[in-house]
């Protein structure tokens, strides 16, 4: 099946954080990197980008099947079914399932593309494959 997902090119990332700002603003109405579904981490001489690859590992550990792929292959969380156990957060191989204490449920990238538009260097883009 086709899967829509973010891809990254860390060599282009300048660490400006505009992706985090755009994402958290869109989904939580605040400018807060801790509430962004994409993360930038400054490393010694490069910037690490944490993104969800829509691999589906989270779906496999969810006890309520609250995580499901939509028609674009994007793994989405149905908050109503989520019991807030955070096993998905613990088992995500990319550390891309996010958790913040203000929220009962975790949150993840839904490949919406808002961060790719905010990114000034093209370090982030959306593809379908």
């Amino acid at each position: 099946m086709r899967v829509k997902r973010l891809v990254k090119d860390e060599s282009k990332c300048i660490g400006c954080g505009k992706c985090e700002e755009a994402c958290s603003q869109a989904y939580f109405k605040e400018n807060n990197p801790e509430k962004s579904r994409v993360r930038v981490t400054a490393m010694e001489n490069w910037n690490k980008l944490t993104i969800c690859t829509q691999c589906g590992a989270c779906m496999e550990v969810c006890p309520t099947q609250a995580l499901k792929r939509d028609k674009n292959g994007v793994v989405k969380l149905n908050k109503n079914d989520c019991v807030g156990c955070f096993m998905c957060v613990g088992f995500c191989p990319e550390d891309a399932m996010m958790q913040h204490d203000d929220e009962r449920e975790p949150f993840k990238c839904v490949a919406c593309g808002i961060c790719t538009e905010a990114c000034p260097t093209g370090a982030l883009s959306i593809i379908e494959f």
Binding site: V83, G84, C85, F86, V89, G90, Q99, D101, R104
Partner: peptide, 19 residues
């Protein structure tokens, strides 16, 4: 079921320890 039905004193330490 939701994760905070016990109305814990400090949910954040529970979240952190669980993860």
């Amino acid at each position: 079921v939701k994760g905070d039905l016990n109305n814990p004193f400090d949910q954040s330490i529970i979240n952190k320890t669980g993860i």
